[in-house]
Nucleic acid binder design. Structure first.
Lengths: 272, 272
DNA sequence: ACAAAAATAGAATTTATATTCCATTTGAAA
DNA sequence: TTTCAAATGGAATATAAATTCTATTTTTGT
């Protein structure tokens, strides 16, 4: 049974979805998850298509619509179509107005970071050097153990790289730098190093990279500019420029480039 | 009679429209004008709606479609919907086709991840719940020490949050989960917890969140869907849906939401 | 001005899609 | 385990939309 009125706005829609929370049965939850993940598809699809994509029966999708308070799919789709027409023509204007109404609310801040992240990603597609990536892949695909070094602000990138390698059963070691231990002795012939550092450049990372190079290991450098000390090393140089918001950055582009590299290694080893 | 084949791309469509030029009769030209001025409407409207908007009869609109080489309106709409889908791709479908084509060069993979990231960020601006963010901010701004818990794939997010807090001199502890130690005893009155977990949900994170809640600490949950066990807890629920590329994701949206939260806390404490 | 051709409007029909119904399965409580 | 309610899948039906048809109007050429 339904009882509640149909959501009139997307905000109301998402709110209703949150209210239902985990009280939804399995199939209906599949619908909810699919719709939250692909709201853009709703406006241009039929129930049959959406149901198939969400891996449920059309009737289940109908029940989902009704559970949310709509009379049926058509009414729900209408909401999505109206929203689509509203936002499509002027995304920039919408963002601008979002910024204008107070820049110190969390929502406004979020808009800033999102915008910065989108621009950084846009940049990445243009600046990423395919040759350098091929070279990096060549180094990593045949490596025995892959060492990953990244401290401070790049530590999340290093840890995510290591996690992804682990998930694909690629032998990898995360150099945590805990206790200032010298991990240099762990670098063995046939290994490779991924060194990640941004300004201000961490000395440990640079030293580790130099140590690796001097022992003849393949080095992949993930850094932010040509001025980086890592560019002095003979290595596959991957440059990422990340747009700052104030003194902060989202790491979106860096994370994206990193995981691309990791997955490419997995693919080249037939592990994916 | 038509004779010509249907345009397969939007470029071909517009070219055909130019070719027909002003040789079109009155009503058909009205259609052409309307479609050129409002291409975005075609994907989400019916013939009747478009005809009314262009101030012609539905049958006139049909003739317009056929004049352009389409079998009817449905075929033309399909072109517009496909074009829309290219801007907002269905990632699961695209990944499947990508694998079939075997185009797994690093650059192609990068493009996939970039688009997934951009789309996730776009989603984030719509799904992020301002009320939940305010609630989260309320909890965190007055907290004594902020505990951050996130393991496996969310560990990078947790570590970046902690790094950012540190940088702003906000007391924060990263729960590393190393050695399966019970960090629960570190939760003191007046503290708050940020718990981050994605499917498959890590037991430690959920347990820690439950422990924190039972001691009356403020909890901020950063999770991926309503199916998450964290939604059972009375906490500020921040939902992020991150688009996967295969079994992988870039974490762009999650990182963005996380740093937004951190910086908002810094702002509220006048530390930025 | 007239005939012929083209274009149009609206109704009639066909097709696609949404929606409902009900038999079966699943899951929870006793 | 047994019982009952909830959930589900798939077929059946209703609804809405696309498409075609034809009588009527408008335009064009002579």
């Amino acid at each position: 049974m339904v009882g509640n009125a149909a959501p009139q706005t997307m905000d109301a829609f998402y709110e209703r979805l949150r209210d239902l929370g985990d009280g939804l049965p399995k199939r209906l939850r599949q619908c909810a998850n699919y719709v939250t993940a692909n709201p853009d598809r709703v406006a241009v699809s039929t129930v049959a298509e959406l149901a198939m994509a969400a891996d449920v029966q059309p009737s289940a999708f109908m029940r989902f619509c009704q559970e949310l308070g709509f009379s049926g799919f058509s009414q729900m789709q209408k909401l999505f179509r109206d929203d689509y027409s509203q936002k499509w023509p002027d995304y920039n204007t919408r963002l601008a107005s979002l910024r204008e109404r107070g820049s110190d609310t969390p929502s406004a801040l979020l808009a800033e970071f999102v915008e910065a992240g989108r621009s950084s990603l846009e940049n990445l597609t243009h600046t990423a050097n395919p040759k350098a990536m091929d070279k990096a892949l060549e180094i990593l695909k045949s490596a025995n153990t892959i060492h990953v070094a990244g401290f401070r602000r790049t530590f999340p990138v290093a840890s995510y790289l290591t996690y992804t390698f682990e998930k694909m059963s690629v032998p990898a070691i995360l150099h945590s730098g805990v206790g200032n231990l010298d991990f240099g002795h762990m670098l063995r012939e046939g290994d490779a190093l991924i060194a990640i550092t941004f300004a201000p450049y961490t000395a440990e990372t640079v030293q580790l990279a130099e140590a690796a190079e001097s022992r003849g290991l393949g080095v992949v450098a993930l850094t932010d500019a040509m001025t980086s000390p890592l560019t002095r090393i003979k290595a596959a140089q991957l440059l990422v420029s990340e747009i700052d918001v104030g003194a902060f950055r989202t790491l979106s582009a860096t994370m994206t480039l990193a995981i691309t590299l990791a997955v490419a290694v997995g693919v080249s080893r037939n592990l994916v």
